[in-house]
Amino acid sequence: MDGDVSGAVGRVLDEWLAGRVARAGALDGTFAADLAHRVADFTGRGGKRVRARLLWWAMRACGGPDVPVGAALATGAALELLQTCALVQDDVMDGSATRRGRRALHVDVAAQYAPGAGGRGAADLGAAAGVLAGDLALVWADDLAAAARSELREPRRQQVREVWSDLRMEMVAGQYLDVHGQVTGSRSPARAIRVAELKSAMYSVERPVHLGAVLAGARPEQVEALRRSGRCAGVAFQFKDDLDGVFGDPARTGKPCGDDVRAGKPTYLFAVARARAVARRDRASSEVLARCLGDPELDEAALDRVREALVATGARAAVQSRIERLSERSTEYLERARPLAPGAERLAALLRATAGLPPVGAGGTGGAR
Rank of each mutant, 00 (worst) to 15 (best):
Ala148Asn: 05
Ser285Phe: 07
Thr30Met: 06
Ala52Glu: 07
Glu300Ala: 15
Arg99Asp: 03
Ala309Ser: 14
Gly70His: 08
Ser285Cys: 11
Leu136Asp: 01
Gly95Arg: 05
Leu177Asp: 10
Ala137Tyr: 12
Arg227Ile: 14
Met171Thr: 15
Trp140Met: 08
Ala225Glu: 04
Arg274Val: 08
Lys240Gln: 15
Ser165Arg: 15
Arg11Asn: 00
Val278Trp: 01
Gln238Tyr: 10
Arg53Gly: 06
Val109Tyr: 02
Asp28Pro: 13
Ala141Gln: 03
Thr365Asp: 07
Arg322Thr: 15
Ala348Glu: 10
Glu332Ile: 10
Gly134Tyr: 06
Val131Tyr: 04
Ala141Leu: 01
Ala216Tyr: 02
Ser330Gln: 06
Ala236Met: 04
Ser229Arg: 05
Asp94Gln: 09
Asp260His: 07
Asp282Tyr: 11
Leu303Ile: 14
Arg338Asp: 10
Ile193Cys: 07
Leu298Pro: 01
Glu151Tyr: 06
Arg153Val: 04
Ala279Glu: 06
Trp57Asp: 00
Asp259Ile: 09
Glu345Phe: 04
Ser327Val: 04
Arg20Val: 08
Ser286Lys: 08
Gly121Lys: 03
Met1Phe: 11
Asp66Arg: 11
Val205Ile: 12
Ala251Cys: 04
Asp259His: 12
Arg149Gly: 14
Ala8Val: 06
Ala225Pro: 00
Ser321Trp: 07
Ala114His: 15
Val109Ile: 13
Asp299Arg: 11
Ala104Gln: 12
Ala129Val: 09
Gly101Cys: 11
Leu132Pro: 00
Glu170Gly: 09
Gly101His: 03
Thr98Phe: 02
Ala317Ile: 09
Gly10Ala: 05
Glu80Val: 04
Tyr113Val: 14
Glu206Cys: 14
Ala341Asn: 06
Gly101Thr: 03
Asp94Lys: 12
Glu197Tyr: 06
Glu328Asp: 13
Asp143Glu: 15
